[in-house]
Design a protein around this nucleic acid. Sequence first.
DNA 1: GTTATAGTGTTGTCTAGACAACTATGAGGC
DNA 2: GCCTCATAGTTGTCTAGACAACACTATAAC
Lengths: 242, 242
Amino acid sequence: MIVLDDGPAPLYQRVKQLIVQNVASGAWGPDHKIPSENELVRDLGISRMTVHRALRELTSEGMLVRVHGVGTFVAGAKPQAPLMEIRSIADEIRERGHEHRAEVIWHQVEEAPADVASQFSVMPGTQLYHTVLTNLENEVPIQLEDRWVNPAAVPRYLEIDPARVTPHHYLMQQAPLSEGEHIIEAVLAEPWERKHLQIDKTEPCLLIRRRTWSNGQIISAARLLYPGARYRLGGRFMKRGS
Amino acid sequence: MIVLDDGPAPLYQRVKQLIVQNVASGAWGPDHKIPSENELVRDLGISRMTVHRALRELTSEGMLVRVHGVGTFVAGAKPQAPLMEIRSIADEIRERGHEHRAEVIWHQVEEAPADVASQFSVMPGTQLYHTVLTNLENEVPIQLEDRWVNPAAVPRYLEIDPARVTPHHYLMQQAPLSEGEHIIEAVLAEPWERKHLQIDKTEPCLLIRRRTWSNGQIISAARLLYPGARYRLGGRFMKRGS
DNA sequence: GTTATAGTGTTGTCTAGACAACTATGAGGC
DNA sequence: GCCTCATAGTTGTCTAGACAACACTATAAC
């Protein structure tokens, strides 16, 4: 039985959510043919244009593949390796066989400063969740994580203990990732950042600004700061814009 | 006077093209308020849903900014540095104050092999343009560029001389960039690639696979191979997928 | 058996209209 | 001056229907 969640969200977003849930749960595996537009129209009792918009957006987001005159299918394994990979630093460290520990510096509600507000497309002063912590590999600080989270998307975020459940894992579980953005640059760390990373004034750092979306809604914006001498970046990236 | 191009393309795509042209030509600069949906409906003689879809897609592509109840504006300077940057290797070399020269290896029509066809979403055997060349910095090969181009999007591509006009510059001029994708990995070069790059069998290479889109249409797919000892990658990336 | 042809089901596009939600503006009352 | 409220203009969403384009299948003709 297919039924829409109720809620204040627009209809087409709830249709998208329904599809995403079926795919994320594994009920609809790769190459599964999903119900046709007319079937969804009949089952959900909504208009075809609304269904069509939901399916079209999910197609442009890479979750579905549509074939004119045939049907709509769950996107299978891509011909090349996954285009995006957002890894957890904790997983990375453990895969290297090292010990991982997180030291929480802040974990609270804060009013968004202007630069953060613009990234979230909200008014400055809007209340957001803010977590700052360092990730240590064998007791050596390897990353400073400065993360803002959208309370509307993840209302219970503040209840977690970031030292035990990494914010990354919690967010991935609460809001299946649909889109991400990485900006990579080399910078010098601020004094308070240097203190937590235990690095020298002249130490160049790799800065990764990461934003993630789920179902069109921004979930989180994070600044990830790596001491240059202790980290190298690898992986695949995709970029888009302007 | 605002008027749509005629052609076989769907109406909403022609509306997008009209907006893109006005922005690319500079007629509508950053923060310019573009005509409202109702004005476009009246001037173009088409329905509002069609106009709305065009504006909505351009907004999601980052070209426009829409404010509920106010209007639609050309996206201005972003609060942070441009999210995507696709640079020309020739520009990079010249900025370092070095001499740049390109050696053309192939520049012709070819039938797409299966892997290329899948990247272009066409049938294997479809005729595409194919250019292979090396870029030399002070007569030292620094990059091998293996590029496929969509003839439907850039029909006169074969008429250029890649040694004089870089394919990158020509494509950027012919089809304003709207979207791009980078995949970065480390590989060993094929024998024929090693010959042109004048590198050793065991030399690790940085491989960047780059695809670019313009107005929803794929323009070009390129494999850019850099000898690891002669190049370091820097820049900003954005990724999205799955 | 092979080849046309018609029919069915699917996605892609477009229309005309409606209502909701939001913003800015100006008029009026205090 | 300051506040409240009505109004107009804009974008966001949704509907019901229509036709086109495409793929597949079953049927009929040869």
